[in-house]
Simulated assay, not measured.
Amino acid sequence: MASAATWAVGVILARQLGAHIPPLALALLKNGMVLMVLLPLALLLHGHAWPTMAAAQWAWVLLSGVLGIAVADTLYFRALNELGAGRMGVIGNLYSPSVLLLGYVFLGERLGGWQWLGFALVALGVLLVARPPSQWRTQPRHGVRGVLIGMLSIALMAIAIVMVKQPLEQHSLIWITVLRLLGAVAGLAVLSRLPALRSLVTFDASQVPWPRLWVAALLGQGVSMLLWLGGYKYTSASIAAILNESASVFLVMLGAWWLREPVGRRAWAGVVLTFTGIACMLSGRVTL
């Protein structure tokens, strides 16, 4: 729950920073800032001893960072700029059903009838915001494209967390976080060098509110990521994903209050449906 709250604040700050920094550059800056803080902390806490993992696990954790942070965060910020925090918050509720399905297939977590009903309700809630009424539209007017980009980013986040579930259970939380960040920063650096994407990392540094960026990075990215991965370390992937859905409540409310984003009845209906679905998911038990 604490991860959801800090993440929601970070998203709101990122939404405001999007006016000054393009999505790819924002993702690179935020993750680089967090890595600058967490890597020395990990070395200090663990006596400068790197984790002892098989080469395959190292590769798996680093790839999780590339997919789940480098690619997914860049797509997420792009969708956030197009849709706004409230709508993107509801679309983000696709995350827990995605983790439930992947956990079922790859981790052996079994779902009950109530949880499958919850899956359907969450999916219906997301569909309610896929074609919003005219007063809901934001600039630029690429609602459908924004929804598709947002859904792809959520799917990649779900895949990445399932990839790293077993290493998380076996190794230090802070080291797994640092290794994912290393993969993320490396992946973002490669993306930023592609000719087609170079324009997405160009910005005027003098126009950037750096104090706000540091808060967004350390709170919404660093602290939230540690708490988020901690949830997956100490409970099942399915339960952790469901509890993370409380972030959408924070996003819708903060988007309306902080950013003055209009939120219509269809949005609230989507929120009610998705959280009814979450309640159904929690009413059943996950078995292994």
Rank of each mutant, 00 (worst) to 15 (best):
2 A>H: 11
3 S>R: 02
6 T>W: 05
11 V>E: 12
13 L>P: 00
14 A>D: 05
17 L>A: 01
18 G>N: 02
20 H>P: 05
21 I>A: 01
25 A>F: 01
26 L>K: 00
27 A>Y: 04
28 L>Y: 00
31 N>C: 03
31 N>M: 05
34 V>M: 02
35 L>D: 07
41 L>K: 09
45 L>K: 08
48 H>Y: 11
56 A>L: 13
58 W>H: 14
59 A>D: 14
60 W>P: 00
62 L>S: 09
64 S>I: 02
68 G>E: 01
69 I>S: 06
72 A>E: 07
73 D>N: 11
77 F>S: 02
77 F>K: 00
80 L>S: 04
88 M>C: 10
91 I>D: 03
91 I>G: 03
94 L>Y: 08
98 S>V: 08
101 L>G: 15
110 R>G: 02
112 G>R: 03
113 G>H: 14
115 Q>V: 08
115 Q>N: 12
116 W>P: 06
118 G>W: 07
121 L>D: 09
121 L>K: 02
123 A>R: 02
123 A>G: 13
125 G>N: 04
127 L>D: 12
130 A>M: 09
130 A>I: 06
130 A>V: 09
134 S>M: 13
134 S>C: 04
135 Q>C: 10
137 R>S: 09
140 P>A: 11
142 H>I: 01
146 G>H: 00
158 A>V: 03
172 S>L: 06
173 L>C: 08
173 L>Q: 05
174 I>K: 04
183 G>M: 01
186 A>Y: 02
188 L>M: 12
189 A>D: 09
189 A>M: 13
194 L>C: 03
196 A>Y: 07
199 S>D: 10
207 Q>K: 08
208 V>K: 01
212 R>P: 00
214 W>N: 11
215 V>F: 10
215 V>C: 13
219 L>G: 03
221 Q>T: 14
224 S>G: 12
224 S>Y: 05
226 L>M: 14
227 L>R: 05
228 W>Q: 12
232 Y>L: 08
233 K>E: 13
240 A>N: 05
245 E>L: 09
253 M>L: 15
255 G>Q: 02
260 R>W: 12
262 P>G: 11
265 R>A: 14
270 G>L: 04
274 T>E: 11
276 T>A: 13
278 I>D: 05
287 T>M: 15
287 T>R: 15
